[in-house]
Design a protein around this nucleic acid. Structure first.
Length: 465
RNA sequence: UCCGGAGUGGCUCAAUGGUAGAGCAGUCGGCUGUUAACCGACGGGUUACAAGUUCGAAUCUUGUCUCCGGAGCCA
């Protein structure tokens, strides 16, 4: 007999009564009735909801006396989908046979049928996907990833894989993880320094902090490209918005100026939120109920209004004249602090804000210098509550200006020979931005700590699995 | 890394110098087309760790570790 195909809970719950269904999943809870049957709630991850199994104790193949059918057990249930006699669900499965694949000892199984804090779940991160919250987060995360690819492919962008092991340092700053096969207890040395010519690649290598510079190479040939991959920062950041390993999306577009870049950023974010609102309704309603009471309101607000666009100078002016007290004072030339960004997005405009044309002194060398010689065509997209989600710019496409900026920032032009070549031969105006995928998931789900929106979070002193 | 807060049964929390408790979970029993089921009983803690103050410390002091919130860095 051919293997019976599994019916997902998601499909069954929307289905009409019919015979011969197979449910396979994990038991969330079981309620016994002395009327001679049990109610078993099974979840298979296909959706937030469980399906209710009615299991009569007289069933010959009701094997739960062989292995205890407890919360956390994994089961296969053959049966019939029937209209439910109880309230709370329209259909349920009348079991014909139940097989317990793996039981779970209720005395030690860490997930009880009760509320658990996300902090506690982090301690049992191999079991937390079996909870409503983490399951819902991962479904939304998946949908967002799918939409990212769809958005760009629909618009003629090519998905580009930039190197994970790299020898280039995107900004001449930012701590990087070193990649080496040298014996750390006894590395080869030359003049007292570690001799990397004997290392695997014959030179010092690191994990990438950004694929942007490499993406520019391909944008200068294929016009529209995007990366979507893991990124690594060895910063000792201990916050609810930072990870040492995170996923970043970086589109890079030839012939886009800063305005085009901002247009794309807004269209991109609104597309993603709209798509999730449409396709992850159940999960979002759950978040709206349990995590953030204003989540749906916020998302709907963001997709239905244009983002505010504010030059840096005007932002400074606005912050200077407000009566709002800040911990950090504001003056032209300084970096905007988190409190300033939040004030603008939450208090002044009450929607996403794009700040652009930052002072060149506080931005990296590759951003295009404006005619004023003081500002660069940079832009940051700030979301209410979350803060910065996107950072981007029009890139400097003039060879001489770029060379000047590299020297100004005390970087070595030789290291950037290939990057300068892109301006030397067939240079084109181009722009791009980077979006932190986990921050996107945070904003979409309302989950406050970034460690709860990635399956295996890596933070300082933490790398399980 | 800096600032602040917190570590008490499996989980969420009480007890603020004087006998460590509750709810949930678990076990047992009862009841029930139940649905975060309900009712009753029972078991379960070297109060993160180390040192100190005190007649007496979960409580006060110091150090260490861990977690949470905020800041910086950024995405």
């Amino acid at each position: 007999m051919a293997k019976k195909k599994r019916d997902t809970v998601k499909v069954l719950l929307a289905d009409q009564p019919r015979e011969g269904v197979l449910v396979q999943g994990w038991v969330r809870t079981r309620r016994d009735s002395k009327g001679g049957f049990s109610f078993i709630e099974v979840n298979d991850g296909s959706c937030l909801k469980n399906i209710q199994i009615i299991a009569e104790h007289k069933l010959d193949s009701f094997k739960y006396w062989n292995k205890p059918l407890t919360t956390g057990s994994c089961v296969s249930v053959h049966g019939n989908l029937v209209a439910s006699e109880g309230k709370g669900q329209s259909v349920e499965v009348q079991a014909v046979s139940i097989e317990v694949h793996g039981s779970a000892d209720p005395e030690t199984y860490p997930l009880q049928k009760k509320f658990h804090s996300l902090e506690y779940l982090r301690e049992i991160s191999h079991l937390r996907p079996r909870t409503n919250t983490i399951g819902a987060v991962m479904r939304v995360r998946n949908r967002l990833a799918y939409s990212v690819h769809r958005f760009f492919n629909d618009r003629g962008f090519l998905y580009l894989n930039t190197p994970i092991i790299t020898t280039s340092d995107c900004e001449g700053a930012g701590e990087m993880f070193q990649v080496t096969t040298l014996d750390m207890t006894n590395p080869p040395k030359n003049d007292g320094k570690i001799d990397y010519s004997e290392d695997f690649f014959g030179k010092q290598t690191s994990l990438t902090v950004s694929g942007q510079l490499e993406a520019e190479i391909y944008a200068m040939a294929l016009s529209l490209v995007y990366t979507f991959g893991p990124t690594f920062r060895a910063e000792n950041s201990n916050t609810s918005r930072h990870l040492a390993e995170f996923w970043m999306i970086e589109p890079e577009m030839a012939f886009y100026d800063l305005d085009d870049n901002m247009d794309l950023a807004q269209e991109f974010l609104q597309f993603l939120f709209n798509d999730v609102l449409e396709h992850c309704t159940g999960d979002l309603e759950f978040f709206n109920q349990r995590i953030d009471k204003h989540l749906l309101e916020t998302l709907n607000q963001v997709v239905s209004h244009d983002f505010e666009r504010l030059p840096y100078s005007e932002a400074i002016h606005l912050l200077e004249k407000t009566s709002q007290k800040f911990e950090y004072s504001v003056e032209w030339g300084c970096n905007l602090q988190a409190e300033h960004e939040r004030y603008l997005a939450e208090k002044v405009f009450k929607k996403p804000v794009i700040i652009y044309n930052y002072p060149e002194t506080i931005k990296p060398f590759y951003m295009k210098l404006n005619e004023d010689g003081e500002t660069v065509r940079a832009m940051d997209v700030l979301l209410p509550k979350l803060g910065e989600i996107i950072g981007g710019s029009q890139r400097e496409d003039d060879y001489d200006t770029l060379m000047k900026r590299i020297k100004q920032k005390e970087l070595d032009p030789e290291e950037y020979g290939w990057y300068l070549d892109l301006r030397k031969y067939g240079s084109a105006p181009h722009s791009g931005f980077g979006l932190g995928f986990e921050r996107l998931v945070q904003f979409t789900t309302g989950v406050e700590n970034i460690r709860d929106v990635i399956p295996f979070p890596r933070t300082p002193k933490h790398a399980g699995f």
